[in-house]
Simulated assay, not measured.
Amino acid sequence: MNDTRRTRAVLGVLIVAALVLITVDYRGGENSPLRGLRDVGAAVFGPVERASAAVVRPVGNAFDAITDAPDQRRRAERLERENQRLREQVRANALDAGRSKQLDQLLHTAGIGGYKIVAAQVISAGQGFEDTVTLDVGSSSGIRRDMTVMSAAGLVGRVTRVGPATATVLLATDAASSVGARLEDSKEIGIVQGRGRRGLGDGGSTPIKFQLLDANAPLRVGQRLVTLGSQGDSPYVPGVPIGTVERIDRPEGGLSRAAMVRPFVRFTSLDVVAVVVAPPKSDPRDAVLPPRPAPPPTAAPSPGASGTPAPHRQQGKKQKAKRKTEG
């Protein structure tokens, strides 16, 4: 089509006419005089519009998906990071609650014994031949070598190496560990020795050995041990619970007696512990030991059992004696 003055005039007239028709139809609303023309246009152009939309829509959706893909990916990554953060927060809250309970128990135990402590957390376990763990406290917290380490349950070991922010603890289960110990009732003394990793071969129930110095001293299963204490309270302070005698080995011509001891501490699940930075003013003796479990209730003897005769039997005997007297 040639761009002439006439074509421009026709185009302008058509545009003006279209605007007039749109205005009249809009102002008329439902009563518009052009309603019939609008319905005819919808009937004619509606199928064409739907067909073109069916062709164009998938292309538009694909284009939108391509353009929105980076935003969707970033949104998914952000949501994944948020979910991970929330999961870690839930786990941390559960761990904090458990550690808070352990710390309360630890402070209670230290208070009974009169120990001044610095609380610590086990952050790693030794991978070599020694039974050791690493704590998250060091010289900056007042920790020194040859200090006693305990948990709420009892003796853990002693500090062997100290750094500015960490400390290494030799566990009481190590084969090189020797601790002076005392029985709670008889006050007999002896040496508790670790058995190393081989002590875990029976499930970890008896990983330490107690050697009684006096072969004739009384020793029985169920007796409990506490630390005897070292000279100058280093490396072991007195009165820290160690464990319970589980089995007694009969001596074979030896000068001492030995027993296998079940520790109070679970060395495979150490978490919150304490380093004793100052000993008690006096030996707590057996005060830190946990209370003994109550004995199981015994059944009352049934009536008529050996001992006290049943009432009806006593009455029968009296009646027989009375008849004999009357006869």
Rank of each mutant, 00 (worst) to 15 (best):
D283L: 11
V149G: 01
S269K: 15
L255F: 14
L212A: 05
P70M: 07
A94G: 06
V156A: 03
A53G: 06
D146H: 10
V48R: 14
E30V: 14
S139Q: 10
G113W: 02
R87Y: 07
G180M: 09
I143H: 00
L155H: 03
R85C: 01
I242H: 03
N83D: 11
V20D: 02
K318E: 01
P164H: 08
D249K: 13
L11M: 10
G114M: 12
Q102T: 00
A278F: 08
V272G: 01
L103S: 02
E326D: 05
P263T: 02
L219Q: 04
A175K: 15
S269G: 05
D39C: 04
V55T: 08
A69W: 12
T7H: 12
A176Q: 15
I191E: 04
I66H: 09
L95W: 09
Q72A: 11
V137Y: 05
A110Q: 04
A299R: 15
Q105E: 06
N2D: 11
S177I: 10
A167S: 15
R197E: 03
G46I: 13
L106I: 08
R6C: 00
P238V: 00
G201M: 13
L255G: 06
G113K: 04
N31R: 15
G157F: 12
D96V: 08
Q84T: 06
P263I: 01
A176V: 10
G157M: 12
V56D: 03
A287K: 15
A65T: 03
A310G: 10
R85F: 09
N93E: 07
H108T: 02
A294V: 14
G222R: 13
P251E: 02
G253C: 10
A97T: 10
K320P: 00
G111I: 07
S141G: 00
A181N: 07
L34N: 05
R266P: 01
P207A: 01
K101I: 06
R5Q: 06
T308C: 08
G41F: 15
L21I: 07
P251W: 07
V273R: 05
L34Y: 10
I189N: 07
V245C: 06
L289V: 02
G29N: 09
G60R: 15
V265M: 04
F210N: 01
L270E: 01
V288K: 08
E88V: 06
G203E: 10
R224C: 02
V277Q: 05
K116Q: 05
R87W: 07
A94K: 13
E326F: 09
S306L: 15
S256N: 12
K209W: 09
R257M: 05
A18N: 12
G163P: 04
F264P: 07
I242M: 08
L270K: 02
R99C: 01
G157R: 13
R292N: 03
P235Q: 06
M1K: 08
H312G: 01
T67Y: 12
R75P: 00
Q89M: 12
D104H: 11
S151Y: 01
S306H: 11
T325Q: 15
T23Y: 13
D64C: 07
S205N: 08
Q72T: 04
L86V: 06
R27P: 00
E130K: 14
D25W: 14
R74M: 13
V221Q: 14
P251H: 07
A42P: 00
A176E: 12
L213D: 02
G142L: 11
G190M: 12
